[in-house]
Structures are given as structure tokens and as C-alpha cells.
Write a protein that binds this DNA or RNA. Structure first.
Length: 193
DNA sequence: CCTGGGATTTTCT
DNA sequence: GAAAATCCCAGGA
């Protein structure tokens, strides 16, 4: 088990695309009762700004999407296809809508599959009750890094980052082919190749 | 390898 | 009333 340290507010205050890459190799900690479920992030997707047609925020600020306009470090969680929740991390300054969808985790101390945004939320028991949760202060859900990771290990992992088209957004016009999905090359837990 | 459909419900038009 | 940032299963090539 890696020794983990919660990521500070500062971590979330960086450009969305940089952050989407920085998140790879970091850990999600989900506390349920006295137990922690821990997974390593291996795949992310960026949704950026009011013009990105793949983003919910392109339709404007609504009851559902208002969290995307919040400050960095908020959790945006929504129900998709009537069955699955998706977990996102809000980025960019207040009132600029952007978020990063966490698409896949490598399970560290649990056995359920988490290779896909819906499966990930099912495995970590993330639902709408956690929508708007502040990841910087929350006791139930937060992000962390490996305290013992050396700089050479971190560098090695950085070199494993690949980018690709986002999944399931063929309707998004000129935004559908943006290479805004990021994943760790050769990691067996990513949702798509 | 690929394509298509069903499950299930919130959200927006 | 249709669509949706998904997943799983069946069937065809």
C-alpha cells in the first residue's frame, strides 16, 4: 500500500489540460465508515469552456451543470443513461465551466472493476449525494499522491502519458475529435485503447 | 473484429 | 418526448 498525502488546494489551480495529465498516477480515496477504498487514476478526459459541444456546460448554466461553474476542486457528479454516475473534478476559475472526467482507476485495495466512468462510481459507491463535495476538505472523497514516489519514478510515469479522442461524444461537431482524453500507456485498467 | 439494442431515469426542449 | 460524457450481451463476418 502506498503512503498517501492529500493534494492541497494549489494542485487544482492549474490549467485544465495540465491538470488532466497531472491527475494520472494520483489516487482517489473514498472513505466509507472506517474503511478507505483506494484507486490509482489511469485515464481522464477534459471538458473545457462554454463552447465545447461535448460539455454539459455548452448548453449554459442549469440546475444540473451549475457545479461546473464552481471553484476548482469541487466534485461534479451526474447520472448518465439513467443508470450510471460519472465523477468529475471541477477546474478553472469560478464562473468558467470546465471539469475533468475520471474514466478509469487501477484498484489498489478493492477487487471491483473500475475501468470506465460508470463502473468506477459503482465500485467506489459514488452517487449524487457527493455532488458538489469539496475534495480539498472532504472526509468522504479526496485525492492524494504517493508520498514515497521518487522524482525519477514520477518522470517515468509522465513519459507514459498518451492522448486520444474522447469517448461517446460523436455529436460534438468540431469538438468531437479533440485529443482531450489522457491515459497511461500500457496500463491494463484503461477503458479503451 | 464489428454493429446494434436494452436497461433505466434525469434533464432539457 | 428525446437524448444522454455507459455498460453488457448477442449476433454476424
Amino acid at each position: 500500500m502506498p503512503k498517501l498525502k492529500r493534494l492541497p488546494a494549489k494542485f487544482y489551480y492549474q490549467n485544465t489540460f495540465k491538470l488532466a495529465r497531472s491527475l494520472l498516477g494520483k489516487f482517489i480515496v473514498r472513505k466509507i465508515g472506517s474503511k478507505n477504498l483506494i484507486g490509482k487514476i489511469v485515464e481522464t478526459e477534459a471538458y473545457y469552456g462554454p463552447n465545447d459541444l461535448a460539455s454539459h456546460a455548452s448548453a449554459g448554466k442549469t440546475e444540473r451543470t451549475k457545479i461546473m461553474f464552481d471553484k476548482p476542486g469541487a466534485a461534479y457528479i451526474y447520472l448518465i443513461y439513467g443508470m450510471y454516475y460519472c465523477f468529475n473534478i471541477v477546474t478553472e476559475a469560478k464562473d468558467f465551466p470546465a471539469a475533468i472526467l475520471i474514466r478509469a482507476l487501477e484498484p489498489i485495495n478493492f477487487s471491483k472493476e473500475a475501468n470506465g466512468p460508470g463502473k468506477l462510481c459503482r465500485a467506489l459507491k459514488i452517487d449524487k449525494k457527493l455532488n458538489g463535495e469539496n475534495l480539498i476538505t472532504s472526509k468522504k472523497l479526496y485525492l492524494a499522491k504517493n508520498l514515497k514516489s521518487t522524482s525519477t519514478e514520477a518522470l517515468k510515469e509522465r513519459r507514459q502519458i498518451k492522448s486520444a479522442k474522447r469517448i461517446g461524444v460523436d455529436y460534438a461537431g468540431k469538438y468531437k475529435d479533440k485529443l482531450w482524453r489522457f491515459y497511461l500507456k500500457n496500463n491494463p485498467y484503461i477503458s479503451h485503447k
